[in-house]
Amino acid sequence: MSDATLIILLSTLTTGLMLGVIFSLVAVGVTIIYGSIWMPNAANGQFFLLASLFVWSATVSFGLHPAFAALLVIGASVPLSYLLEATLVRRFYDVPNRNISYFVLTLGITQILAGIFSITYGVWSDQFQIPPIVAGVTMIGPFPIANNRLAAMLIAGALLAALFALLRYHKYGRALRAVFQNRDAAALRGVDVRGIYRMSFVLGNAVVFAGGVLFACAYSFDLTVAWTMAITAFAIMIIGGPGSVLGALVIGIVFGFTQAIVSIFASPTVAAFSYLGAMLVILLFKPSGLFAR
């Protein structure tokens, strides 16, 4: 195999993984919240962007180390989520068709955040880049990869594994699944449904924030990433099956690789069309998603 072919092969592999883990993280965050509270958070893209922008401010404007800034921002999501839960989210827990209410609510939040970003960050720059967490380049055979991307990829992978273990084996995870499946039955068995709701909202947002932070480490970004990410996360959740963490994980990775592989043979635009098209076909034949429980 020639070096050129090997480089293209390895670049496809790393791109697929890199995009895949980020997509998965965000989709897992979205699906944890949707699966438990029935809340389709249209603002997840804005939350994702919020995390990216805050890391940018912390590093570029305040000179913090990117790793420290990243932890700080993910930590900041917790009080933020509690605040939102107490003021706006909680009041809809018992509303019959609350997913529509939540959708409207989060569209409102989207509008507000987009408006604020556009007159602050939007005026400060047209593109945002944070300094690398780790400098340097690693050679995988003939293929050079920036250590920073490698680090972001590994951290995202580790986070996904930890989340998966938490939801599978920990007490909270079991309770969450019980609420996913049947809220009333779970309540009868003594599960604190509202506590689980709150916990899911906080955890889901923290995961979305982590996705935003890692994305900002690996890529330059601008304000348009919010909508792209929101739509992608929704698409992954629908194909994987809403509420299915495994589904979000697997389909997220598949999305990443689709984008990487299709763009070798066709144009990147065709790649975008292809996975959205695949989504429509899957929906027609298995509307509840591939990994529905």
């Binding site: 389709p40 997913n99 959708f103 929704f234 629908i238 929906l283 027609l284 509307p287």
Partner: peptide, 20 residues
């Protein structure tokens, strides 16, 4: 897709259709 997808699932699906 609305024939197979109920309620909010169709909404999410239509969001993607709009994007396409």
């Amino acid at each position: 897709p609305a024939l197979r997808l109920k309620g909010f699932y169709f909404t999410l699906c239509s969001l993607v259709i709009q994007t396409v």
